[in-house]
Design a protein around this nucleic acid. Structure first.
Lengths: 304, 304
DNA sequence: TTGTATGCGTTATCAG
DNA sequence: CTGATAACGCATACAA
C-alpha cells in the first residue's frame, strides 16, 4: 500500500492536479464549484491522503522546521540533561501550536552539526548554552536570513536575539529571601564564558566568594570557608548538593524545577510562559521576511 | 547572498550537474578524472555549498529523519519533563552518530500530531509512553513499512518493537537491597495502562499495597499504613517524595538519575547504552528494507 | 570520463 | 471555474 499523492486523487476524482491542490490548500484566489470540491475531498479521504511536506518544502521554500540546538558541556553533571529539558519542552510545545515541527540536536562542537541548519533549510533556530569560540568559527554558515535566538549564550553578534535570565533581579530577590547580603555564590558552569562572567559580575561578590561548581570535593572545600553563612546557588540541582553542607541558601532555579528543593530555602523561579512571546516573535520573522524587532534582548524575569 | 546549488557549482566549474553530483556524493560506479574532481571540489568550497536535504529526500525517498514522539501525561508531575530527558538525549545522540536528524514532538493526543510522521516521511519512529487507546485509533496512519519502536508502552500490535525496563529483575534487586520482602510499592503513573498493570503484577503485591502516585496527600495517606516498613518506589523523583515520610525504600531509577537520591537508599539503575543496540537495529531496518528482527521485545536490565 | 534528460510531489502561473 | 505545465534541487539511467 503506497502513499497516495495529489495525482492519485486527481485521477480518482477525475480532475486535474492543479484543482486538487487548490482545494486541499484552500486557495482563496481560486473559486471551485462545490461539486468538485466534495468530490475531491471524498477521494482524498478515501485514499488516506497526507501531504508530502518534503515536496511542499522544496517548492515553497519553507520547511516549517525549527531547530533547537543544545550545546553540551564537555564534562556535564548528572543534571545536564535536565537543565534545559523544560525549556526545550516548552519551546517545542509552542512551536507545535504554531504548526512547526522541531528538530532537536545536541551539539558536541562538530562542524557537521551546524551544517544541519543549512542542509535542512530550517526556518528558525534556537541555540542553547552556546559557547562563543566554537560558535564564532562557523557562524559564516549562518547569515542566510533565518532568525536565530540564543538562550543562555552571550554571542558577539547583533544579529542574534539573546535570551537570558535576569540575574541582577534574581540576586535581589535572593537577598530579600535570605534577609541579608549573601556571603557566597555557587554557580553551575555554562559553556558561554561571557555569560559566566556576567553572572559573577551581577552578584557583586569578590571572586574568592564565588565557586563555579566542578566536583563535590571542590564544592566542599569552598563551602567550608562559609560555615553558617548565607549564600546563593544558581541551579536547583546544584543547590541540592550545597544543601548537604549548609542550609542558609537561596536558589535561582534556572532549570525551572524548584520542586526538587525543600520549601525552606528561598527559591527564585522563572515563568516558562515567557517563551510564548519569544517563539511568537520568531514566527513573525518567518512569516514576515523583513520584520525587524527593536528589542533584541530578552530577560526572563525571576519571581520568588 | 543566496544558497548555492549544484547547478551553480556546475556552472562555476564548467561541468555538468551530473558530474558535480557524482563527485559530491562520491559515487563509486563513476570514474572521474582527478582534474575535474578538484575543480569541482574547489568551486563547491568557494560557493560554500551545502546539500539541500529537502530536495535530496524527495528524490531518494529517504529523509534521514527519525521521530521521537513523547506522549504527555494528562496531568503530569514536576518530573514529567525529566522522566525521559536522558532517554531522548541518548537516542538523539546515537541517531546523530548514524547521520540521522531527530524530530522531537510531545503529543497531546491530537490526531494532527501523528500525521507528522507521514507528512514528514520519517524513516523511523520512537514512541514513548504511548497509551493504547489514543494510539489504536490512529495506527492506520502507520503500517507504511517504517520501523516503529515503542518505549514504556505496551501496544497490542506485533509490528512494533517494544522496549521496557525489566521490572521483574528490578524487583528482585530491590528485595536484595532491602534485605527482605517489600511491603509496599509506590509507582509513578504511566499513560499505558497495560504497562501499569504489568508493573503491579510483577511486584507480586496485592493491590492494597500498591499506590499509583497522584498527589502528596494521597501518598501520605498510603504511606501512613506502612510506618517503618520497607518498600519499593518506581521513579527516583517520586522516591524523593516518599523519602519525606519513610526511609526504608529501594528505588527503581527509571529516569536514569539515581543521583537525586541519597546513597543510603537502594537504587536500581539502567544503562543508557542499551539504546545503542536499539537505535542500530532501527538503522538496520532503514538500510535493509526487508530485514526482520526475530527479537521484538527489548528489556532494559537494571543493575543495583 | 562526462553530459542529457527524466522525475520525485508540490505549488503557482498562465491559458482556456 | 478548470487544466496544462514549468519550476524547486537533486540523483540516476542512459547516451555519447
Amino acid at each position: 500500500m503506497k502513499k497516495a499523492t495529489i495525482k492519485d486523487i486527481a485521477k480518482a476524482a477525475g480532475v486535474s492536479i492543479a484543482t486538487v491542490s487548490y482545494i486541499l490548500n484552500d486557495v482563496k484566489t481560486q473559486s471551485i464549484s462545490d461539486e468538485t470540491r466534495v468530490k475531491v475531498m471524498k477521494a482524498a479521504q478515501q485514499l488516506k491522503y497526507v501531504a508530502n511536506r518534503t515536496a511542499q518544502s522544496l517548492k515553497i521554500k519553507k520547511t516549517g522546521l525549527i531547530g533547537i540546538l543544545l550545546f553540551q558541556e564537555q564534562e556535564g553533571h548528572y543534571w545536564s540533561d535536565f537543565k534545559y529539558a523544560k525549556t526545550v519542552g516548552k519551546i517545542e510545545q509552542i512551536c507545535g501550536q504554531l504548526g512547526y515541527h522541531v528538530i532537536f540536536m545536541q551539539v558536541r562542537s562538530q562542524l557537521s552539526d551546524y551544517k544541519m541548519i543549512m542542509e535542512r533549510n530550517l526556518d528558525g533556530v534556537f541555540l542553547i548554552n552556546a559557547d562563543q569560540e566554537q560558535f564564532g568559527t562557523i557562524s559564516n554558515y549562518f547569515g542566510f536570513g533565518i532568525p536565530v535566538f540564543v538562550i543562555d549564550s552571550y554571542i558577539d553578534d547583533s544579529l542574534f536575539h539573546k535570551i537570558i535570565p535576569d540575574f541582577a533581579q534574581s540576586f535581589r530577590a535572593c537577598e530579600a529571601a535570605l534577609g541579608g547580603r549573601p556571603e557566597f555564590l555557587v554557580t553551575d558552569a555554562y559553556n558561554n564564558e561571557k555569560l559566566a562572567g556576567f553572572i559573577r559580575e551581577q552578584s557583586g561578590l569578590e571572586d574568592e566568594r564565588i565557586c563555579v561548581y566542578d566536583n563535590p570535593e571542590q564544592l566542599n572545600d569552598f563551602l567550608s570557608r562559609f560555615e553558617g553563612k548565607p549564600g546563593i546557588v544558581i541551579n536547583e540541582f546544584l543547590a541540592l548538593e550545597v544543601l548537604k553542607k549548609t542550609a542558609r541558601i537561596a536558589a535561582v532555579c534556572t532549570c525551572h524545577c524548584p520542586q526538587v528543593l525543600p520549601g525552606t530555602v528561598g527559591r527564585i523561579t522563572f515563568d516558562l510562559n515567557d517563551y510564548q512571546e519569544i517563539v511568537h516573535k520568531m514566527d513573525r520573522y518567518i512569516q514576515d521576511a523583513d520584520y525587524v524587532d527593536p528589542e533584541k534582548f530578552y530577560y526572563l524575569s525571576g519571581t520568588p
